[in-house]
Design a binder for these strands. Structure first.
Lengths: 208, 208
DNA sequence: GTCTATAAGAGGATAGAC
DNA sequence: GTCTATCCTCTTATAGAC
């Protein structure tokens, strides 16, 4: 990918310190108050930098937001380090489920959802970039696993149905809890484990 | 509830025509571009009214947004007129599922989700008001039905589990399709019916 | 109640010195 | 590359006439 005019000008040897300051400051501000309410002034203040320094690194406000989303979506949604040790399908699914729920309800993920969805109708690209870098990342992981289970592990699960089952499984986990979090409603920690257990139970009962 | 200063001054006999114009204009603007990008100027222009007229009816921009969300959430999410004729549980669940999916993915619902979630961290009240008037409305309906099924219809479904199953059932239906819609990704109409069918199948297999 | 006109200020973006 | 100072537009909100 060639470097476009206005893209971050980062030294090839070491990321500029200022650029790093701007990145993390903008990240905090945008994810905290959202794109609209965030001002370049407040980003500059938080980064201990002048506004024109920001414009030296990023073409404009939209490009800055875009860069932040693309940079942060992957680490937030890709950090699913689930122990693969166990061969017990039920336990494995439960581990995956718990990890996924924790990821989706983490403050960082919730803030990013809010910020991106708000801008999705104005900047169509940002919606797609986020969806591909974020939610689909976890989906692919689970798709692969259910695909494997279709061949060996869950006898009643046809290979053709595997992706759909993976989709429904994940949807059960986030679902209402996710909407509640996005709406700023208090979480119900006890409920999470019940949901995970029941989602696993539904799938296991149907396909094993 | 007593009328607070700045609240809409609506004649007790008939809603003022101007107030109605402002309401529907603001609704269109806010849901189209979101709270931040919407200006009182554009609302006034769309309503064929001056800005000061708006401020005569609503205290400020936030209160106007608040009034619109509360007024619109109910009709958008409460319009679940599902035919109750059939006694066939499977068919009944499929009808409920289809109706729910169509509601959640309708342009009005998607726009409202976007607008509200964007403001949820700034105006905590709006998140709660929306959640109670919108999503929970459909939930209660389904909760009641699953409660009834627990007593008669689905022998393996305990009354204590009914609300949780209702929750998971709905989560499966909206789930990823909803997130995709919010991210402005194109919908997959064929997928919807598959999802509904499989969600019903999962529940029926486990509890009947 | 409604309008025109305007105050008051914030925000994005840039010019020019260093 | 970075800063200070500034431009200009847009926005919320109000004052005062009718």
């Amino acid at each position: 990918m060639t470097r476009k005019k206005g893209a971050p000008r980062i030294s090839s040897r070491l990321k500029s310190s200022k650029a790093e300051q701007i990145f993390s400051a903008a990240e905090a501000v945008f994810l905290d108050v959202g794109y609209g309410a965030a001002s370049m002034e407040s980003v500059a203040a938080r980064a201990n930098v002048s506004k024109s320094t920001i414009y030296g690194h990023f073409e404009n406000k939209q490009m800055l937001f875009d860069a932040i989303i693309r940079r942060r979506a992957e680490p937030i949604f890709g950090g699913q380090d689930v122990p693969l040790a166990t061969a017990d399908i039920r336990q494995r699914l439960l581990d995956l489920a718990t990890s996924y729920v924790m990821t989706m309800l983490s403050p960082g993920a919730v803030s990013m959802y809010r910020a991106v969805l708000a801008e999705a109708s104005q900047q169509p690209d940002i919606g797609q970039a986020f969806y591909l870098a974020g939610p689909t990342r976890a989906q692919r992981q689970l798709n692969d696993y259910f695909g494997a289970l279709a061949e060996r592990g869950l006898p009643k699960l046809g290979a053709a149905d595997a992706p759909l089952v993976a989709d429904l499984f994940m949807s059960m986990l986030a679902g209402d809890s996710h909407v509640r979090a996005l709406c700023n409603q208090p979480p119900d920690e006890v409920l999470f484990s019940k949901i995970c257990a029941m989602a696993v139970d539904l799938v296991m009962t149907r396909y094993s």
